[in-house]
Write a protein that binds this DNA or RNA. Structure first.
Lengths: 121, 121
DNA sequence: CTTGTAATCAACCGATTGGTTGAACAAGGA
DNA sequence: TCCTTGTTCAACCAATCGGTTGATTACAAG
């Protein structure tokens, strides 16, 4: 399966049901049955979803009698946030500089990132 | 396919090749062939990846002669960031308050979130 | 009009995914 | 010990995914 951690996290959150579970776990820990209750799928399906979230490092499960309370782990979010922010910043900066506009012009040499264009807006 | 926008974005970024393309597009716009060059997959495969990214709203394609330059759209990142930050904040806050720790204690009344424990390390 | 290049469409393939049902395991409580 | 509850395991199924190859469209240059 998805080798790297980042892929696992993104993939885990690509499913709306799993995102909803995360949202609910952000409020309070819950057992598998509690989590399964609102959705009209089997408990087994929810158990599977939880394994995906666990493999992604998004949740952890402890043992409390025969119950297995699920707990949301906030740390992994940082992994995503860092990745996203990095490229978002680059992309926005590039947009701000109109760098790409210069590149798409046929007459511009444009090797140096020197914004000679008057960027008023 | 994944109905909502958030699912599409997360799903699109769940693939390492697509994340790499996004990373490269953050530096500069590129054509399909340019993008395909570093990977040892067919151009068609890259074209498919681009469609996924486009459907997620992460990139846009213009037309320039027979070339179709691909451009990274930064806006959609916000959608993810907002979602992530929201639940990360909730989870971290809850962790900070030791709310869940109190909940798992059998003898504590635990209704008030008063952190009486001296957290030195 | 023909050739060459950039990209997409179409059909196919094996692996993974999200779901199901049925059986098994784990841990109290009677 | 047997029963009940909570959860997971196992096998299966249809749909989707990432990849392939071959044909096709779009445009520019001879």
């Amino acid at each position: 399966m998805a080798a790297d951690a980042l892929s696992r996290v993104f993939s885990a959150l690509a499913d709306p049901t799993r995102r909803d579970m995360v949202a609910r776990l952000a409020v309070a820990d819950a057992t598998v049955n509690e989590l399964a209750e609102p959705y009209d799928v089997s408990v087994q399906a929810v158990s599977k979803h939880l394994r995906v979230l666990e493999d992604a490092g998004l949740v952890s499960r402890s043992r409390e009698a025969q119950r297995r309370p699920v707990h949301l782990e906030a740390e992994v979010f940082d992994l995503m946030t860092k990745w996203i922010e990095r490229y978002r910043r680059e992309a926005e900066e590039r947009y701000r500089r109109l760098d790409d506009v210069l590149r798409s012009m046929p007459d511009t040499p444009a090797p140096t990132p020197t914004p000679t264009t008057g960027e008023s807006s």
